[in-house]
Simulated scan of single mutants.
Amino acid sequence: MFGPLLSPHDPTAQDLLHALEGPSLAHPLGTDHVGRDVFARLAHGAGRSLGIALACVGAATGIGLGLGLTAAYAGRWSDMAIMRLADLMLAFPGSLLALLISGFLGGGVLPMLIGIKLTLWPQFARMARAIAQSELKEPHVEAARLAGFPARTLLIRHVLPAVLRQTTTLATLGLGAAIMSISALGFLGLGLQPPTPEWGAMISELLPYISEAPVQMAAPCLAIFISVLGATLLGQALSEPDSGKEIER
């Protein structure tokens, strides 16, 4: 996220006289087909790729938790309506749905956010509903209900903390999926538009020059790989304490 501070070069500045140069002191990862510094573009693209992924996961988590808690508490008909909507969204392949929405709306940040959010929220809603239904049957929650506490208090103070503990792991895994979706849309030209640096778009731009610039081509691929791997390992690390407690029980 602080990568732009490490590179003195403008990520959009072109220098055709130094196109496809290999790594050097001036350009640690070389230059692309129009002479732009690859390290500068990689560093500036990190903030956009990871920032958009975090925004997508955050929005999907909020929507999913809200609908999941509503389905668990509001009653049979609301539960059926929300869960059938979630099933409908899950029937579409996630990447295909994001691709269709981005393509229909012309690409860019907003369509990308909408498409990826629609692919992620059903997972959070289903998990939140399952955990909330279990928590609502706990004795202390039943006691609070009989004491006359409103539904908002029951859900926020007694149910939501347990839901958040479980969905944090799912959110980290969703972050990796969001990074992959953003990169895929950028590769297809439906993400951030040139000359804005973005990892998927960088791969698409350098693909015709893979034989002349293998290092430049590998840089955004490796950045995506490390980011997704980091998100996955973070999710596994967060889930281990809970898994240990379940085994002990």
Rank of each mutant, 00 (worst) to 15 (best):
L222G: 03
R249D: 10
E198Y: 00
T119I: 07
Q166M: 13
L6Y: 08
G107Q: 05
S78Y: 08
A60P: 03
L222F: 10
L50N: 07
L192D: 02
G30S: 14
I224M: 06
T31F: 02
S204G: 04
G103R: 10
L118I: 09
G3F: 04
M127N: 05
A143M: 14
G148M: 12
G107H: 01
E142F: 01
G191Q: 08
S78G: 11
A53T: 03
T119Q: 06
L96W: 09
L113M: 13
T168S: 14
L90I: 11
R48D: 05
H33F: 11
I114V: 15
R41L: 03
A201W: 02
L155G: 06
P28K: 08
A86D: 07
I247M: 10
I224C: 04
P150V: 14
E142I: 05
A201L: 02
L120W: 04
Q123S: 07
S134Q: 10
P23T: 06
A162R: 15
T61M: 07
L206M: 11
L155W: 08
L175C: 12
Y73G: 07
S181L: 02
R48A: 15
T196G: 03
L97S: 05
L238H: 10
S95P: 01
A144S: 13
D32Q: 01
P195D: 06
E142T: 06
E212V: 08
A130G: 15
S204Q: 09
M202S: 01
S49A: 15
A219L: 08
L100I: 15
A19D: 13
F39E: 01
G66I: 05
L155S: 03
E246W: 13
A171L: 11
L192A: 06
L173E: 08
P208F: 14
A40M: 02
P28Q: 10
A13Q: 11
I247G: 14
L42W: 01
I131G: 00
L118H: 02
K137W: 00
I156N: 14
E135T: 10
S24R: 08
V159Y: 02
G47K: 01
R41S: 05
G186N: 00
M112V: 08
G189E: 04
